[in-house]
Design a protein around this nucleic acid. Structure first.
Lengths: 344, 344
DNA sequence: AATATTAGCGCGAACGATTGAGCACGTACA
DNA sequence: TGTACGTGCTCAATCGTTCGCGCTAATATT
């Protein structure tokens, strides 16, 4: 296994031990024995010794020489968010299936960290980049537009630049959720948003408004609140609307964390779902079925987002000139449970 | 940023453009200008040009030369499990704070994948390894006992080999939980276990039995079930005990997934917590407070496990000879909510 | 004037793997 | 006897960085 740095098994060592050159050893171990007419004997002895010593080639050296590291970089805003953890799961599994390694960076929802992460990843010689951008700005991504460097965005994209992406069909998701609420008699639906300028948020707002429009329900900006996908935002915004005695009968939460925050505010206010208020949340997680009450959700195929993104990325790595589809949207699914009350 | 492989900015390029040798450039950019008495002028011009060209040194080349990659490997059984995601979060953040990168491998709860991951990581020249072992076997880890290679285990450890580890005080956690149940009048407590031969499981069983013993309650093996930390196990084991009409008034679930599985079985059986059955689960997550009912849990400091493990690992990397503490146990905390009923 | 010191920088090898070019030997054929 | 070819391997350069050693020229010391 050659874990001990000083005792690394190298081509040189194998060659010396067998009295042949590294060249020959390298060729044999790369399966080029035939092409370079290396004798069966030599080949056998090399293969045998390499196995005995548990030779594993240094990917550093190989990467330096070949400019191929079989490594991709993954930048995620917060790995402890189950949605992103699930994407990361899809990424690592699919990458591994293709013999690629993954270097993980946590940008901590911070553009500067994201930019720094890119630099670090490049210095490590990644062949491609999988980025779940934080989302406020894409200035630092502009250079990838014209570049041939393989990059794929996941979850969020930027309409103003053309970089391939994989995301959920957030428009449809929000539209379906809103539609479902409307069908159940709701007309005043609190729209609990995440970071405003991000594509998931904008698309979901569009979906929300489209559903309202389809039923001729006027948009009420007073109940469209929030500006971050985290729990704190869900809590404070819900609490504020409650204190302001705003009129609404349902909440559409744009993330699982927003939902949890809202739930906290509601339980503090002694309000119960669905009796006093109905709710639908984005992101489905195993626990959603066991909340009080079981939560109706818009499920995203988060693991598939990761997998699909890796596949796109590897395609671009293998043939950088073949044009890749600009964007891929994966379907969302409305999972009906018991958090929506039918208003007569 | 030098992302485009062919257009990489190298020392050579800077040197050529300035008419000086790479050596000098390297020294200046590594802050050794003074030590090697390089003139202020030269230094300035190099720094200026490097900044203009956005020079970022190749960590591949540096790693190859120095045998220092500033990279650690992280192997996790399942990144989509929030407990491990949280550890990973601690790891990436703490590693980044120390200028280290993290290569992530998902062993998918599979020893063979774990072994393969180790090989891949070593071939990438990691300086240290952070492993959340799958846990059934540690044969492949024996070689690290005598080796000077820095390795730290997280979450699980092996009594039969001496490798430093960071884990929760699972004994105390299970003991406290059981004790709390007993104090609330429970004497027949279902022990819903994870993978039997792992240290967390064994320690928790010991804690469970210790609490029973302290109250002179006999151990009932019929209600000590389960052999995997996942949701499916929680579901099927609970369901089976229910069908067998086993006598128990409370469940102690050894993981959040086990708890979710149990919850599913209970709701299928139309049993309600805490009215029909009480429950305590290991792992605290943001959603636990909003379950039906709010779940009493044993919280682990999962992110801190990751952080602490990285700190230990870096210490060992920096001074491989200094003896490190063999094991670190982080405290658990009983978080009382509403899933335990006080019997009469 | 001869020698010592200092400033300022370069040479060349090394890390480990890959690769095109080419060398030495044997055999076969004209 | 000369040459053409096949076999089986080695040489040396390369990727980008680092580092021990040492070089040259200018200034200082005796």
């Amino acid at each position: 296994m050659s874990m001990d740095v000083n005792s690394r098994v190298t081509l040189k060592r194998i060659g010396k031990q067998l009295g042949i050159s590294v060249t020959t050893v390298s060729r044999i171990l790369n399966g080029h024995a035939r092409r370079y007419r290396i004798s069966k004997e030599t080949e056998k002895s090399v293969v045998k010794l390499a196995a005995e010593l548990k030779f594993v080639p240094s990917r550093l050296a190989r990467g330096l020489r070949l400019n191929k590291t079989t490594t991709i970089g993954l930048v995620i805003p917060d790995i402890s968010n189950p949605f992103f953890a699930s994407i990361a799961n899809g990424v690592t599994v699919e990458a591994h299936r293709n013999n690629y390694g993954v270097i993980l960076c946590d940008s901590q929802d911070n553009v500067d960290m994201e930019i720094e992460s890119l630099e670090v990843l490049f210095s490590r010689g990644i062949e491609g980049l999988l980025l779940c951008p934080v989302g406020q700005s894409c200035e630092h991504l502009k250079k990838f537009e014209r570049s041939r460097f393989p990059i794929v965005l996941a979850d969020r994209y930027f309409p103003q630049i053309t970089i391939p992406y994989v995301a959920s069909d957030n428009f449809a998701g929000a539209r379906d959720a809103t539609q479902y609420l409307i069908e159940n008699g709701h007309r005043q639906i609190m729209c609990l948003q995440g970071l405003r300028n991000t594509s998931p948020n904008k698309d979901r707002v569009r979906g929300y408004e489209a559903a309202l429009a389809a039923h001729s329900i006027p948009v009420n900006r007073d109940i469209m609140v929030g500006n971050s996908f985290n729990e704190q935002c869900g809590y404070s915004e819900t609490r504020q609307l409650l204190e302001n005695k705003q009129n609404f009968t349902a909440i559409l939460a744009f993330s699982n964390l927003l939902m949890l925050g809202a739930l906290r505010a509601l339980s503090e206010a002694k309000l119960r779902i669905p009796d006093n208020l109905s709710m639908i949340s984005f992101d489905d997680q195993p626990y959603m079925a066991h909340l009080s009450p079981p939560m109706t959700t818009i499920a995203q195929e988060s693991s598939e987002i990761g997998q699909k993104a890796v596949r796109l990325l590897l395609e671009r790595i293998q043939s950088p000139d073949k044009s890749t589809p600009e964007g891929v949207l994966l379907p969302t699914r409305l999972i009906v449970r018991e958090s929506v009350k039918h208003l007569n």
